[in-house]
Write a protein that binds this DNA or RNA. Sequence first.
DNA 1: AATTGTTGCTTAATCGTTTAAACAAAAAAT
DNA 2: ATTTTTTGTTTAAACGATTAAGCAACAATT
Lengths: 344, 344
Amino acid sequence: MKKTSLKDIAQKAGVSTALVSYVLNGKEKETRVGEAIAHKIRELAKEMNYQPNHLAKSLRSGKTHTIGLIIADISNPFFANIARVVEDEAKRNGYTVIIGSCDENADKSWDLLNVLINRQVDGFIIVSCEGSENQIHYLKERNIPFVLLDRHFPDIQTDFVATNNYKASYDAGIHLIKGGYTHIGLMAYKSDMYHMEERIRGYKHALQDNQIEFQSSWLKEVQFESMDHEVKTAIDEILALDHKVDALIFATYGLAINGLKYINELRLKVPSDLAIVSFGQAEVFDLYYCPITYMRQPLEMLGKTSVEYLLKKLKNPDEGMKQILMEAKLIARDSSFAKSVWVK
Amino acid sequence: MKKTSLKDIAQKAGVSTALVSYVLNGKEKETRVGEAIAHKIRELAKEMNYQPNHLAKSLRSGKTHTIGLIIADISNPFFANIARVVEDEAKRNGYTVIIGSCDENADKSWDLLNVLINRQVDGFIIVSCEGSENQIHYLKERNIPFVLLDRHFPDIQTDFVATNNYKASYDAGIHLIKGGYTHIGLMAYKSDMYHMEERIRGYKHALQDNQIEFQSSWLKEVQFESMDHEVKTAIDEILALDHKVDALIFATYGLAINGLKYINELRLKVPSDLAIVSFGQAEVFDLYYCPITYMRQPLEMLGKTSVEYLLKKLKNPDEGMKQILMEAKLIARDSSFAKSVWVK
DNA sequence: AATTGTTGCTTAATCGTTTAAACAAAAAAT
DNA sequence: ATTTTTTGTTTAAACGATTAAGCAACAATT
């Protein structure tokens, strides 16, 4: 049983395919299709369960109503959730999303980009990974519409939707300082990505603005690929210091998970031995015996806005560049409970 | 700058599009294309950065090299991970995956199915949700290839790849019994789905085979939609019983997360107050102060095999039905530490 | 009565491929 | 020298839709 096509309907109705197309696309008025025949066509279409062939439509129109979503790391629940938001929002607008994760690997990202371009996606939403600047330039050159999500490149003029990472990190620092912590560490990725630099910058400024001198031994930058054991070493180190750290900020979800596991192994008490604030968000943080304070990023808004920007651009390619930084919100939990209260 | 098409190359080379197509598809031998011209075409293609238009190819061939993956609940990390496996395996075989989550809702599943059918996916891999039997019948009637993943319907003859849930649940029970636990509860979803029934059946048999009389008050079936608070009530109840439960099996990841959070709130000690074994798997279970014993399902194998089955079916639609049940493996951790050891 | 306008429909090109069939020229066999 | 075979290439239809342009038939206007 083959799928019914316009032609099948046309044949059965004894008219040309043009008429059928007009009617089923609601163009009967403009194109002056006869009342009676229009009715008949609609009947037949329903009867024969006509479903238009997207491929043919797309080939003709040059629009696939498909968005390519390239995500740096889909195993991170923050990104997984944002992907869901993007998918839902796109669906609400009649778009389908094809998702790909490049696992923080620029080569993989290239492959994905090409596969999706060949699939004629109308545009991209991209959570960039390190070393993928050339890909952004490529898209710009080829005039393929795209919006950067969560991470962007300050040196490249693009549309983007991201979090104010400087501010978020600054706030995290301030929160701990206000809580009476004075030796505050930051665990981040070793990376040239702007969002990571911003998180480091915000952290440093928070210390500086409160007359705490930043110690370079407090900042631990670990490699994404060898996170598992580098995190352990880093924690060992910051705890062995003279000016031993009493609070630690994790700059990403992955670091937090690894770090907390190890802190568990060490039988350290949070927050008395070590206070914690983390980026990223996941129900997981509630599972820890002591709920984890974290920076809540406006996940829904980020996802929705990125779709909105992209769709606007698809409708009107000449629209101006859109850039927005959204604020994260600190969710205070027990893991950063004020030292001033429980000390003494 | 428009994309280069076959025609563009043909023009520049001064030949017909047919030749170009033959050469670029490696059919030069069968179709006897001249050595020289073939070379020239290949050169030009590279030079002009030719990328075939997938839409046109698909329209012509009737094959999109795209798989629709419908997942009951993508926010469950087990499913999220299996989705990644499916995606990777498909990519390795030159297929693209379009993922949709129906959030355990049969209507949403219908929508997804239709969207994807209109997009002309070649076939489906489906993690079914409750009440979606009609959709399976629909696919069978329309002769659209598909493979059920993780969940299947015993009353409908289909290809499927799933876990032996009966055995897994039985093993979970046996493990606890051997550990000296005698009052064992099971928290499951209220559902007609076969995989859930099997998990209940396995649990009951484990008790029965060890002369423990099953108490209906030990089995808690909660609604997926109102899981948050129903789980709490359920835990309250099984702890208030005369024959109070000393161990609890969570039949899914979502139940475990909610349950463990609440157990934390109650300040119950695992495993001394309550031992835990859970289905589902996630790094999260390591984060709990007391690592959680769980049934590891062969995630990689499940995903890969489902792709393999589907692709085989796409190549040869008449191939026989393939069904396989894989075994889960119990990963013993502290949360189910043998009572016989710590109780004097 | 000739012109113009309106209505209702068909024709045919197009999107970018694939591929069976046709064709012409050269080479081989009779 | 004619026929057959081989070789290299082109033609054109097809996939399933959209849509500008064309064409009758009839009605309305001059």
